[in-house]
Amino acid sequence: MLSSERLDQDILHQFFRKMFHIRVVEETLLDLFAHGVIGGTVHTCLGQEAVAVGVISALNVETDIICSNHRGHGHFLAYCGDTRSLLAEILGHPTGVCGGIGGSQHLQKKNFYSNGILGGMSPVATGMAFAEKLKGSGAVVVQFMGDGAMAEGAVYEALNIAALWNLPIMFAVEHNQYAQSTHWSTQHSGSLEQRSEAFGVPSFAIDGNDVAGVNETAQRLINEIRTQSAPRLLFMHTYRLGPHSKGDDLRDQEELDHHLQREPISRLREKLDQSLVAETEQLVRQQVSTLVSDLRGN
């Protein structure tokens, strides 16, 4: 039995709505980009929505802290659902979550912080965990990174300190298989899953496209981190369906088709009431489209 089958249908439906919402927002962003409405760059997490929703649903979003990366729209939306301020930010409006100064990769709201330097947030998140430990707040920090960032030295300095000082942090690795255009196997030696173990950070490798499974494991690890004040690493196998940023994709269609069969939203959809799903999808599309029209002033 898949772990998803054990979860309540209502919760699964909520996960679906959040994941589908992220998908629609990001497809909208790519469309706006293609039409020249937004500039700069947009890194989407198409195909990785189960990671964002599964992990962040396991947190206490009032007190826990999230450090995200360049591919952080999904994390942001799963954290606060504030689509308007995210879209406004990327459209460059002063009402954006960082007044349009931050843009897609540099988002900050309450306990959410993202930055566009790969691996750079690992030490920062570790310091936040140290701060919360000294305060005795009970808060846990989750730091998202991709397998690409696991080639950065800063990550290992952070793992060492997090374990040495017993800090309440979960390193959440999205193994989406590509670093820009480079397949993970051509830039990493040894086992990615087991690397953190050498630092004394227990690592758990799971299917990152099964939102219920992600959520269940994340809940267990977050609970361990909170009660034991010790770091963990959650390693999630997933796949980046979209291009690195915009149209820069040179992968084989055959490979993409293979992974489309395993993508998290279709997999979850199959387990839900189809008429309810159709209703949710229509509602989400309408919400996002209304927001975009509002923000574009038409």
């Binding site: 750079g120 030490p123 920062v124 936040m128 701060a131 300095e157």
Partner: peptide, 13 residues
Amino acid sequence: GGFTGVAVGMALR
């Protein structure tokens, strides 16, 4: 680099 980053995180919190 690591402990400077740690300090940045502490300052943010």
